[in-house]
Design a protein around this nucleic acid. Structure first.
Length: 1159
RNA sequence: AGUCUCGUAGCUCAGUUGGUUAGAGCGCUACACUGAUAAUGUAGAGGUCUCCAGUUCAAAUCUGGACGGGACUACCA
């Protein structure tokens, strides 16, 4: 047993130290890449993420050695995971699910404490570290989910078992543990019960052809012990008699009709297992099903018969043309069976009617059955899908039968023994196997013989071969049967209400699973069948004596005491070491039990079975042979792995480990682990076992099919992680679909994540590092207060803090998908696409002073925070980023992102107004750009102005604060606002359906139409008076300003664009001045290109010579300073002729120029 | 068979308490930018919101049913 601290760890490390050497390396860490490329292409991304790098990192940096022990001052939250050792089998599924699950930990919870649970029921000794564990270990580590597996606690340790025993004894004391029979799948061929797991093996269910019989159960004589048992019973006989009355003494059905034969009434019941008929104890009908009494003939004996069956199933046995056809002409040769409905009733009316036992033998008498057999009872499970609507009920051989039989006390008959053969005293069938379990070549089918017998005696209505699926034993390939076996139960139904109540306090993700699937399950719960008849597993600590007294052992100590007591009372010597000391009980002959030392004690079979205890009355007691359900092991895991209540060690304090903050597992565990944890938590501690549960959806293949080895569509997690990295895989799994939704796993999606998210992040970081290296930015300057930074810095920091808030909220709500998507959006749309793009100049232009430092600090803070925020999802990249930043600046004392605290939003930095106006700026820019595109004027060409109609003061205010930004972004000179609108702006009304709808109701449609029809005059009247009367369907309807959105749709004569209620108009006149400026910019652009092609450094100064060219002359004169500044030229020389220059095209003008580097 | 869940663009997913132009990203096409440059930006095409019926002035959204994918439970005369 061990509690393991887990750290999300990792990073990416260089193999080769090839710096990106565009600029001299200064203090910031160099971005290492694997191949000698300068940039990061999608293809390289794969290589960059190579897990080989992760491995190196782990060992070089020693992060592996970090445990909860040496991390101080960090809040530790608990995380409980369940891991199955079936890893080898289901590795892909489990690994992928784990990937999704493990992102769940609330912020500030680093490192989470992970408890590893090992639900193995493998044989003692064989499981130390078998390959599945190695594999598990490896994948866990590579996924960035690290648990110390060097010392896992295991469920077959004595300490673990001791807690289980303690738990069982607690239940025993509360009278929640009892022994009973249950009908279980059983393989007579193998002589063993089968678990449902075994029954769910592929290939278990096979199509077989069985002999089926529709048997006829004759209603008893009219009285039972002198009184009719059901008023209907009399009536049925009477109906039959009356129906046949006209035919009495007539030659009918192959003989003279006799009055006393006419009244025979039969229930029809179908069975696919005729061998269960001697064990029949009842007939079950559906209370709400309609049944009919049909006058007809027995198809085999051709004698008159009256049968009862469900009305809905008449067509299965009777042809329509036979209805009310002539009874008198029916002979044994007749093809057509005449029939007539002579009575109709509900199933509930039939309840209690008695019938004669179908196949009475010496061995299946009323006394043997116990109870009150051979009655009609009701059950909800009866359908009219097939059969007759009346179910032959043999409580011994069907779970439903047993349940309903018990409820109605019809007794139980078990005419087949555990070898699958009829017991003695079953007449001619005695000793015969119900199926060919012995591979007897001369085997004859008992079912057939029973069918023949029934045919001959007039108790069969239809015998036919029927193909259906039937479960088979996976070991012997023989059909299984359902058989009553002794079993131990936990009386979960006794705490049902409490379990339901406490379940309501559990935070289920998604909610529906808890309320629906799990809630239903609880509502319909049955007692928990604990027994398993295998060899390996936790033995049930119950000893029983022949006279029925019972002891439940709750600890090793107690066992020792009891053994001592037994030794004394029975003269045994069980405590002693040796296998000699033969005593007067054969069981102990080969005893190797040496309980003098704890570790020598083996609480498993066969050892515990050899222990004999003594009852209070001095009788020897033997252990019940049962083992307990491994799900009990799992359910008790929170305390069993702490060896509760035997350990006093503070680290094993139950209060710190129970209940779990949350658990996560596949949704398929609803009835498994989720249930057993809950049941035991409630029964033992009257507490939930977990506060939150996340039920993970399945990971499907890209076509939406379940991954299966057989189909070959399994994703190998090793390969995936090897190739695409843990981070990209994790990010993909988390952001693509909520953990509880099933996910179509497509490798293309991971590539997309690499490009889109990690590529952008990497490039953003690289951009930062590039210039930070140049300027030697190490965050050594004093932190500049946010309010003292430029507006755009304030904005991105405000957005960043909003992001922190959102991500934290999403994480706390166990919504990592939302968190991941929010991070993506921030990085891509806001940081990269807006902030960095707009601020590029600030990083390379000008001196290293205030504004530049602001830019560095701001971008640094964004990157740093991003690293922290994304650490749970992308542990390796996040750490890489964090350390790259932090190792230079030392801002955080922690050496790894996983040791640092999760960011906390600074509310003071959040400025909603600012965020709103930046959104406006983005929208305005986007609109201007789209107009530019429409009219084909490139952004480099400056334009004079845009016009923004503003219908409220606030919008104007907001926009005017970000004018410069917009002007810069879309290259215009000025922004003008149109406030007084009438006659200039063409307005349009958009009805607000929400407010209008409730008021207008049915008139809504015509009102909406009328609103759209309103002219400019009407609109200004509405604006002025705040209301307006519309003429709709001869009715006056009042609308308010608040009922409409007023949109400036158009400004006549301008090029406009709008989005929502924002409209902009662009002045597209290019004046000669603007043209010149455009030319200048174009020229700068061309020269920059040449600089780059010529291999100049960005800081090189140049001289520019231009061949004189009249149309361009004034541009150069007017914009000389601007051009020089941009291209780092000291002077521009106009020369008459250039020999070896470059020809460039500027707005359709050809220029010849020559650039030389100044020395 | 029952219970649960999912079904929206070629693909992966958003879509608030029902409200009128159903959104992203990828992919595709075109263009722009060129001191983040194998990077970046803009635009376009692409939808019977699986189907049917109902409730409503109004349904991708609510109700019922069908179909399809998936999970679990059960194996049934």
């Amino acid at each position: 047993m061990v509690i393991i601290s887990a750290v999300f760890f990792g990073s990416i490390l260089a193999i080769k130290s090839i710096p990106i050497d565009i600029f001299p390396k200064l203090n910031l860490p160099v971005i290492y890449v694997i191949e000698p490329y300068g940039g990061m292409t999608p293809q390289q991304m794969e290589g960059f993420f190579s897990t080989r790098l992760q491995d190196q990192f782990l060992y070089v940096n020693g992060i592996k050695n970090i445990t909860s022990k040496n991390i101080q001052g960090i809040s530790i939250l608990k995380l409980t995971f369940f891991e199955s050792t079936d890893m080898a089998e289901a590795s892909a599924q489990v690994a992928l699910q784990l990937n999704r699950a493990m992102t769940f930990f609330p912020p500030g919870a680093l490192p989470p404490q992970v408890i590893r649970f090992d639900a193995s029921s493998l044989p003692v000794g064989t499981l130390v570290f078998s390959s599945p564990d190695k594999k598990l270990e490896e994948i866990t580590e590579k996924m960035g989910y690290w648990v110390d597996m060097s010392d896992p606690y295991i469920t077959f340790d004595n300490e673990y078992i001791e807690t289980l025993w303690w738990a069982l004894k607690e239940l025993y004391k509360k009278d929640l543990l009892y022994k009973s029979v249950s009908i279980q799948p059983y393989s007579p061929a193998a002589g063993t019960g089968l678990s449902s797991h075994e029954l769910n093996q592929p290939g278990t269910y096979k199509d077989v052809k069985d002999t089926t019989v529709v048997a006829m159960f004759a209603l008893s004589a009219e009285k039972h012990n002198g009184i009719p048992t059901n008023p209907l019973q009399l009536k049925l006989h009477e109906l039959a008699r009356n129906a046949w009355e006209p035919f009495v003494k007539m030659p009918i059905g192959g003989g003279l009709m006799e009055a006393d034969k006419a009244g025979a009434v039969y229930f029809m019941a179908w069975t696919t297992t005729p061998w269960t008929l001697p064990s029949n104890c009842g007939l079950t009908v559906g209370p709400n099903i309609d049944y009919v009494l049909v006058q007809t003939f027995n198809p085999y004996t051709h004698k008159p018969a009256n049968v009862i069956l469900a009305k809905a199933l008449l067509g299965k046995y009777f042809k329509p043309e036979g209805q009310e056809s002539d009874f008198t002409i029916y002979t044994s040769e007749s093809k057509l069976l005449p029939w007539k409905i002579i009575g109709e009733f509900k199933g509930s009316e039939l309840e209690g009617i008695r019938y004669d036992q179908l196949l009475p033998f010496e061995g299946n008498t009323r006394e043997v059955a116990g109870g009150d057999p051979w009655r009609v009872i009701t059950g909800d499970f009866v359908t009219t899908e097939d059969g007759t609507g009346i179910v032959h009920t043999a409580p011994a051989f069907g779970a439903d039968d047993y349940r309903v039989g018990k409820k109605h006390d019809i007794g139980i008959l078990v005419m087949v023994d555990k070898e699958g053969k009829f017991i003695d005293y079953t007449g001619e069938f005695s000793g015969r196997y119900v199926k060919n379990y012995k591979n007897d070549p001369d085997y004859t089918d008992v079912d057939v013989d029973i069918a023949v017998k029934l045919k001959l005696s007039g108790h069969a209505f239809k015998v036919e071969k029927y193909e259906h699926t039937y479960p088979h034993c996976w070991r012997t390939d023989k059909p299984i049967i359902y058989y009553p076996l002794d079993a131990w139960f936990i009386r979960t139904t006794a705490v049902k209400d409490r379990m339901i109540e406490l379940n309501k306090t559990i935070n289920w993700k998604p909610k529906a699973t808890g309320e629906g699937r799990f809630g239903n399950w609880l509502e319909n719960m049955v007692d928990w069948n604990l027994s398993r008849s295998r060899f390996w597993g936790t033995p049930l600590p119950v000893w029983v004596s022949d006279d029925g007294s019972m002891k439940c052992i709750g600890s090793i100590e107690e066992l020792m005491q009891e053994v001592k007591k037994a030794n004394k009372a029975l003269g045994l010597n069980q405590l002693l070491e040796a296998e000699h000391e033969v005593v007067n009980h054969s069981v102990i002959d080969s005893l190797t039990f040496k309980p003098t030392k704890k570790e020598d004690l083996d609480l498993h079979k066969p050892f515990v079975d050899q222990i004999v205890l003594v009852s209070d009355s001095g009788q020897p007691m033997r252990r019940e042979p049962d083992l307990i359900d491994v799900w009990f092991d799992s359910g008790a895991m929170p305390y069993a792995q702490l060896h509760y209540p035997f350990e006093k060690h503070p680290a094993k304090d139950i209060k710190k480990n129970f209940p779990a903050d949350f658990i996560a597992e596949g949704v398929d565990q609803t009835r498994g682990w989720f249930y057993t944890l809950h049941a035991l938590g409630v029964m033992l501690f009257d507490s939930v076992a977990y506060k939150t549960v996340v039920s993970n959806g399945l990971v499907l293949d890209k076509n939406g099919n379940k991954m299966s080895k057989r189909v070959g569509n399994v994703i190998d997690p090793f390969e995936t992680i090897e190739k695409y990295s843990a981070d990209a895989t994790r990010w993909y799994l988390i952001t693509n679909a909520s953990p509880w939704d099933s996910l179509r796993f497509d490798l293309e999606g991971i590539k997309e994540v690499q490009r889109k998210y990690f590529g952008t992040l990497y490039n953003t970081y690289q951009f930062f590092a590039l210039y930070a290296n140049v300027d030697n930015f190490t965050y050594k300057e004093k932190h500049i207060a946010v309010v003292d930074r430029p507006e755009i810095d304030q904005w991105i920091l405000s957005t960043l803090n909003t992001l922190v808030k959102d991500v934290t909220a999403a994480m706390e709500d166990y919504e990592p998908t939302q968190a991941g998507r929010a991070i993506e959006y921030f990085l891509d749309e806001q940081l990269s696409n807006w902030y960095v793009r707009l601020c590029r100049r600030r990083f390379w232009k000008g001196e290293y002073e205030q504004d530049k430092i602001c830019a560095y600090q701001t971008l640094y803070e964004c990157l740093e925070t991003l690293a922290l925020l994304m650490a749970p999802i992308a542990p390796f990249f996040a750490d890489w980023l964090f350390r790259n930043l932090n190792e230079v600046t030392g801002r955080s004392k922690q050496t790894s992102v996983h040791l640092a605290d999760y960011p906390v939003a600074d509310e003071g930095t959040i400025n909603a107004d600012l965020e709103e106006r930046m959104r406006l700026a983005q929208d305005v820019s986007s609109l201007v750009l789209s107009v530019r595109k429409k009219v084909n004027i490139k952004v480099r060409q400056p334009l004079q102005r845009i016009l923004i109609p503003v219908l409220d003061v606030r919008t104007k205010d907001q926009i005017s604060k970000i004018e410069d930004l917009i002007k810069n972004e879309v290259n215009i000179k000025s922004i003008e606002y149109l406030t007084d609108s009438e006659g200039f702006i063409k307005k349009k009304l958009k009805p607000n359906f929400k407010t209008l709808g409730t008021r207008m109701g049915a008139k809504m449609k015509s009102v909406a139409a009328a609103i759209v029809q309103m002219d400019q005059h009407d609109i200004s009247s509405l604006e002025k008076n705040k209301n307006f009367f519309l003429q709709v369907d001869n009715e006056q309807v009042e609308i308010m300003v608040t009922d409409v959105d007023i949109i400036a749709e158009d400004i006549p004569g301008w090029s406009v664009a709008n989005k929502d209620n924002l409209t902009i108009a662009l002045d597209i006149t290019v004046t000669p001045e603007l043209q010149e400026e455009g030319n200048a910019r174009e020229l700068v652009n061309r020269i920059q290109k040449i600089r780059k092609e010529s291999g100049f450094e960005v800081i090189d100064r140049i001289t520019l010579e231009i061949e004189e060219y009249e149309p361009f002359k004034s541009t150069i004169i007017h914009y000389c300073d601007y051009i020089c500044a941009e291209i780092l030229a000291d002077t521009i020389k106009m020369v008459p002729k250039i020999e070896n220059g470059t020809e460039v095209e500027v707005n359709d003008l050809m220029l010849k120029l020559f650039i030389s580097k100044n020395s």
